[in-house]
Amino acid sequence: MKTDELISMLANGAQVVEPHALRRRYAIALGWGGFGATLLMAIMLGVRPDLAEAAWLPMFWVKLALPVALLATALLAVLRLSRPGVRLGRVPSALAAPVLAIWLLAGVALLGAAPGARSQLIFGETWASCPFNIALLSMPVFIALMWAMRGLAPTRPALSGAAAGLLSGAMGAAVYTLHCPEMDAPFLAIWYLLGMLIPTTLGALLGPRLLRW
């Protein structure tokens, strides 16, 4: 086939492209993935029984703010990485901000606590299961995002996979706050971040394989 024939073939009857195809794709992926994560949390882990009282405590909202801030920034990264030729700009530093903030809070909490109480602040009651539960809850969003991204054009597949993984991890962590009984910054600063890092690493590893086009 000559190049001119290919050009005619591509142009013939080419359908109208709707302007917001990319955003719509991610809205669908996040919607279904978030629904799946919530369902998984409700069935396998259960909502914490004292959620109504916990919602009065500032720390509950700090705990939610960490994944939500990361979610918003990772979404921005994912949107940019899905379009060829769009630069990440300041997104990486925006990602660092919530992480530094929670580390700062954790440092203040640890310094202010009696030495004997510190390990309780760090390990809580659920440190061993927390990262894996977050990774588990991130899986519906992870799968949905990989589907969405496969239909787009990421030119940096490992980085794009990592960004999608972080976004799914942040979503998983946000949903997990509805179950998780822990309320201390040092716990969040370690185990929540670790939980989100699991799907991030998975995305970086799978990206080059799954996101080719």
Partner: peptide
């Protein structure tokens, strides 16, 4: 991949990256 072009974006950058 034409649905990934954003009309506000320089075309050169998009084509070059592809």
């Amino acid at each position: 991949q034409r649905h990934t072009y954003d009309a506000g974006q320089p075309l050169t950058a998009w084509i070059h990256a592809i």
